[in-house]
Structure formats: C-alpha cells, structure tokens
Amino acid sequence: MARRAGTRQTRGSILEEATRLFGAQGYTGTTMRDIANAVGLLPGSLYAHIDGKETLLLEIVEGGIDKFLALGYAAVAGPDSAESRLRQLIKGHVAIVAQNAERTLVVFHQWRYLTGENLARVVEKRRQYEAIITTVVEDGFRTGLFNDKLDLKTSVLSLLGALNWTAEWYKKDGPDTGEEIGERIADAILLGVRGR
C-alpha cells in the first residue's frame, strides 16, 4: 500500500513539474530529461510512472477540459434562466482559471501538440464545451433575455475568447480574487448581450 501511495505521489509530482515546464518552455521545448531532473529521477525511471511525454500532455489537457465540462453540464441542466446559467458558467470558468492559471495556459495552448486519437479526443471535448455555452446563449435569445440581433456564433466565440484570455493576465497574488473578477466579467458580458 505504501508503494502505491508513493507511486501516486511521484506521478503527481511528475504532472506538476511537466505542467510547469510545458508552461515555461512549451511542450516541444521540454524534454523527458528536463522533467526527470525537475522531479529528481533518472530519465529512464520516468517510464515506470508514465508512457511518454504526450501521455503527460494529454492528462494535463484532458483533466483541465474535464473541469470546464463538469461546470458546463451542471449549468446547462439547471432550472434557472439563461442569464443565471450564463453567469454561473462565466464565474465558474474564471474560478477554474484562478485555481491554476499556469495549468490553464497549458490546457488552452499546448493541446495542439497532441496527435491522432489524443488530439481527436481533446478537440471533441472542446467542441462539447462550446456547444454547452451555445445552448445557454441560444436559450437566452429564444426567451428574449438576450438581444436576438446578435450573431449566435460570434457571441459564443467572443465570450469564450474573453474567458480564455483571463488566464493570460490573472495574477494569484493580485488585488482581486478570481471570484471578484468572475463577477465583473459576468456583469460586462451580460450587459452586452441583454435584450431591451
């Protein structure tokens, strides 16, 4: 049992250091030797814990997207108005970013280095998240809460762009909490899409 716990701890350290290195040096600029050195292992010893560098990237990216999907599925299934659900999505998205902006940047930028089935899985999950937000915004248009003169696709992509950009400028030690920033972004976006 102690060996299994030690393996999980080592794997957690490997993921943490890989995230940091992918964020600082990029996926292609990070070697297995870099990751091994960061966790204090011989490069060959890494393979006792992982299959390879792409496996690490997939786990980081997919784990991050899964957090956004869980938030999205909870919001889209809720009984509240489209405006309340969109506010919940916006605030939740920013809260996930604020938990670990460094990881979020890897999730948002480094996924392109995945290949084959790994890439297809991640692209599908990204599409699912966009579809969730589209459903909520579309519901707001349909019920008259949001201005139906706005283009749906442009509105959704603009919203995602604004939310995803938060990871670029959010500072954990800044004067504002993730919750405060999420509330302000929700106010700004919702004021922009409200119908008359």
Score class of each variant (00 low, 15 high):
Glu83Thr: 11
Pro43Lys: 12
Gly140Tyr: 12
Val107Asp: 09
Glu168Ala: 10
Leu159Lys: 08
Lys149Ser: 01
Ile60Val: 11
Ala95Lys: 10
Ala120Arg: 14
Ser84Ala: 15
Lys91Arg: 14
Arg33Ile: 04
Gly52Tyr: 07
Ala75Ile: 01
Gly64Leu: 00
Val97Trp: 07
Trp111Val: 06
Glu124Lys: 14
Thr104Arg: 13
Ile50Thr: 04
Asp34Met: 02
Leu145Ile: 12
Thr166Cys: 08
Val123Ser: 08
Gly44Gln: 11
Leu105Val: 14
Leu152Phe: 05
Trp111Glu: 07
Arg126Val: 00
Ser81Phe: 00
Asp148Cys: 04
Tyr129Ser: 04
Thr104Gln: 14
Pro79His: 08
Glu62Ser: 11
Val106Arg: 07
Ser84Asp: 12
Leu58Phe: 13
Gly64Pro: 13
Glu124Pro: 10
Thr55Glu: 15
Tyr170Gln: 05
Trp111Ile: 03
Lys153Pro: 02
Leu119Ala: 09
Arg121Phe: 11
Ile132Thr: 12
Asn100Gln: 07
Gln128Lys: 14
Ile96Thr: 10
Ala48Arg: 15
Tyr170Asp: 00
Leu159Val: 10
Ser84Gln: 11
Trp111Cys: 02
Tyr47Lys: 10
Ala77Pro: 03
Val107Gly: 06
Ser84Thr: 04
Gly92Thr: 05
Asn100Met: 08
Lys53Ala: 03
Leu157Asn: 10
His49Cys: 01
Glu62His: 01
Val136Phe: 03
Thr115Arg: 14
Asp148Met: 06
Ala36Glu: 01
Arg103Gln: 05
Leu42Asn: 15
Leu119Thr: 07
Thr166Gln: 07
Ile35Tyr: 04
Leu159Trp: 08
Arg33Glu: 09
Leu163Asn: 08
Tyr129Ile: 04
Phe68Thr: 02
Lys153Ile: 02
Leu114Trp: 09
Asn164Lys: 11
Gly29Phe: 13
Thr55Gln: 15
Asn147Asp: 12
Ala74Gly: 12
Asn164Met: 02
Ala167Ile: 06
Thr135Tyr: 04
Gln128Asn: 14
Leu119Arg: 15
Gly40Gln: 12
Gly144Tyr: 02
Lys149Pro: 00
Val61Asn: 02
Lys149Trp: 08
Asn164Ile: 01
Glu124Leu: 06
Ile132Ser: 04
Leu119His: 14
Ile90Cys: 01
Leu114Pro: 11
Lys53Gln: 09
Glu130Ala: 10
Gly140Asn: 04
Glu130Met: 07
Asn37Pro: 13
Leu58Arg: 15
Glu117Gln: 13
